[in-house]
């Protein structure tokens, strides 16, 4: 990930406040750039496009557009290694979850996630079971499991209904 030029006039001054008022973002301004997160991150070790410290800095500078439309926020595997080690108590993984939630709100959702979401909504499970699977389960002495769960649709968020993939998936 390279940011060639940062034009702070284009930055969104309210972004930091917006983030800090939500769960996961409360502590981001405590980051003192020690890079423990980067050193702990198994992704940063093999892919330099992912850099937790840089993402926190970008968010604090108000680079809303650049962060929420980026591919790199989706590289986080949510392993919590950074969060466990942060000496300043920044909930980095929870902050990444918040950023992804906001990115979806703005209409940026990777294709893979959209596909998984449709499965959860349709069958109530991310790996749907059909009668064939239940027959297979029966053969090894396992009880059949429900192949659908209608109640999931009732609880499914209407807000993400029209949010398609960002085309970057």
């Amino acid at each position: 990930m390279t940011v060639s030029k940062i034009d702070l006039d284009q930055a969104d001054a309210g972004f930091k406040k917006e983030l800090m008022s939500q769960p996961g973002g409360e502590m981001i301004s405590a980051c003192f750039m020690c890079r423990t997160c980067v050193a702990s991150c198994p992704i940063s070790a093999v892919n330099d496009r992912f850099h937790p410290l840089r993402i926190i800095r970008m968010a604090l500078y108000g680079l809303k557009h650049e962060v929420l439309r980026s591919e790199f926020i989706w590289l986080c595997s949510s392993c919590y290694a950074c969060q466990e080690r942060c000496p300043q108590g920044v909930s980095i993984t929870e902050f990444m979850t918040l950023l992804k939630n906001l990115a979806v709100k703005e209409g940026h959702m990777p294709t893979g996630i959209r596909a998984q979401l449709d499965l959860v909504k349709g069958q109530g499970r991310i790996y749907p079971l059909d009668d064939f699977d239940n027959k297979k389960r029966g053969k090894v002495g396992l009880p059949p499991l429900p192949t659908s769960c209608d109640v999931v649709q009732k609880l499914f968020p209407a807000e993400v209904e029209d949010k398609g993939p960002s085309g970057r998936g």
Binding site: S78, L98, I113, V120, V160
Partner: peptide, 19 residues
């Protein structure tokens, strides 16, 4: 018991935390 999927942290949580 008639559970649905949990749902996974790798999709629903990233998309819509409250749901």
């Amino acid at each position: 018991l008639p559970f649905s999927c949990c749902p996974p942290t790798s999709n629903m949580k990233l998309v819509h935390y409250d749901s």
